[in-house]
Computed example of a mutant assay.
Amino acid sequence: MTEPLPKPPARPRLQPGPIATALAGILLLVALWQWSNVLLMGFGAILIAIALRAGAAFLHRHAGLGFKPGVVAVALAVVLVLAGMVALAGPAISDQFRQLIGSLPDAWDQVTTWLSESSVGQFLEQRMEDAARTENGGAATDSLPSVFGYVTGTLSTVFGGVANLILLLTVAVFLALDAPMYRGGALRLVPLSYRARTGRIADELAQALARWMGGQALDMLLVAVATGLGLWLLGVPLALVLGLIAGLTNIIPVVGPFLSGIPAVLFALTQGFDMAIYVALLFVVIQQVEGNLLMPMIQRYAADLPPALTVLAIVAFGGLFGFAGIVLATPLLLVAIILVKRIYVEDVLGDRLGD
């Protein structure tokens, strides 16, 4: 009598729980990618709301004003200051902007003339002409549709940007007015065992972003004043608007100085080649002082971010989200560093950093 053969081991069945979780995670990542522009706008609105709440907290401590009236007072004060600046300096700034735009063609002509007289410039010009002929099939009229498309695309981008800015400011004001309600609603989505920890991390993020914005605003102001004063001492006519551009673009690390220095040097070329060199040296000196002396002092009280990670964040977020990613790269990096420290290093690895 033969013994029965042993039954083969049963194959493990796939549990629906992990599969559903993986699918939900994939769908969430796809949704986040599709809504990346909305999420970036929301992040920008949160930054503005934090600034409004910080101003309201200052009024609450020193004037006893409630948070909601304080937010309204801060927003109205910003609007009045901007309106006053436009009323007082607006005509001069707009006139200087017109002069700057009108002078750029002459500056570009001088650059192209200088390039055409050099062997390197002739080589680059020949390569650009060959590339243009290859792209257009040798016909100049073929480029007309692309020109009209560029103009209409630019107009739609401008109007879309204005609409997005209005929406951004509106959302920021609503967030600032009822910040505790939105914070509490977001925390209710977190399991009870992690809710207190999540609340502490959220408060740390808000404080770090508030310190970063305060330090960045001070840095932008000092760079604008130093650039405008230096250009005025050099005798550059459009010192006011060029200093304003330098201060505004300084919000973008590494890239910002180039964005403000290029139009300044181009305009200085209309005043002479020596003036262009002086202006370029001025921007180099200001950025060296700002990067090696001013910013470390500000970061000591604001947010100390590693320079290498900052550059990589600009490249990464810029490649993913375009110009908005470049502008928001630094605060996004700050958020990422805090989340990695608190959630991964401390909670997952169990290594208490103590900072």
Rank of each mutant, 00 (worst) to 15 (best):
A302M: 10
L294D: 02
L281I: 05
P307F: 11
Q287C: 06
I286P: 06
N292M: 14
V315D: 11
L282C: 00
A280Y: 10
I314D: 03
A313H: 12
V285K: 00
A302N: 11
L312I: 07
V315M: 13
L312D: 08
Q288W: 11
P307L: 13
A302S: 15
T310S: 09
A303K: 10
Q287D: 07
Y301H: 13
P306T: 09
L312H: 14
D304T: 07
L305E: 01
V311Q: 10
I286S: 09
F283P: 01
I286V: 09
P307K: 14
I314M: 14
I298H: 02
I286Q: 08
R300Y: 15
R300S: 10
L305G: 12
E290N: 04
V279R: 02
L305K: 14
I298M: 09
M295P: 00
A313T: 12
A308M: 09
Y278V: 00
L281V: 06
Q288H: 03
V279H: 02
V289R: 05
V315N: 07
A280N: 00
A308E: 12
L293C: 07
P307D: 10
V311Y: 14
Y301P: 01
Q299T: 13
M295I: 02
Q288S: 06
V279A: 01
A303C: 11
L312Q: 09
Q299W: 05
M297K: 15
V289W: 07
G291W: 04
I314E: 05
T310K: 07
A308Y: 14
D304P: 03
L305T: 03
M295W: 14
P306V: 02
I286E: 08
A308N: 08
V289A: 12
Q299I: 08
V311H: 14
R300F: 11
P307M: 13
L282E: 11
G291C: 04
